[in-house]
Design a protein around this nucleic acid. Structure first.
Lengths: 93, 93
DNA sequence: CAACATTGTAACCTATTTGGTTACATATTT
DNA sequence: AAATATGTAACCAAATAGGTTACAATGTTG
């Protein structure tokens, strides 16, 4: 159970990939075939990376789609822990 | 990249957990605090396990939520690969 | 067999999410 | 100053997650 707020994969995309390849949001959006607005929302951590977009990133940057989705999963899970109430869930033993 | 259709986590839930603990769909739904219909859809592989439900399963069966979500991820990814068209995605190098 | 428990599913509903377009104002570079 | 790049608002559409209620079809068991 992670103690600290894991990074949003959009941050990784921006800092580790777009920076290295000198890609603007507008250029990369075109390359991926998604809207500039949506990519902007991704790199600003406003929306999650979907399975479909993970596949596109994977092809574009020659990664696995899993690295994007596992980072998204960690991010989502951390935030869900802060909000989901489990008090009424019964334990099975 | 997995060659074969990975199992839906609902199958695991049914075969490995509900069977062991002798839980019916109706009983477990109550314990988790979700509707019987929704749990039925999960164990019949009709709908995915959400982050929230993974947290509930984790508390109920004393697992990590990750085991449910990673299995879901593998399932989703495999199916997305069969449908998402990546032909128009440009490679960044 | 009769009674009961369990299940799948249909019909319906609501809120949220994913993604798009267009337009405009603000940065940031050159 | 001109050109480029960005954030974001106002829209919109399709899909998703999850709920309720009701009913028919199973299984199970006294």
């Amino acid at each position: 159970m992670e103690m600290f707020n894991p990074p949003h994969p959009g941050e990784t995309l921006k800092e580790l990939y777009m920076k290295d390849y000198n890609l603007t949001i507008a250029k990369l959006a075109l390359m991926l075939g998604i809207s500039r607005k949506h990519l902007s929302n991704i790199v600003n951590c406003k929306v999650p990376i979907s399975t479909e977009i993970a596949l596109k990133l994977a092809k574009c940057f020659n990664t696995t789609p899993e690295i994007w989705l596992r980072e998204q999963l960690a991010y989502d899970l951390w935030h869900a822990r802060q909000t989901v109430n489990l008090d009424d869930v019964k334990v099975a033993f």
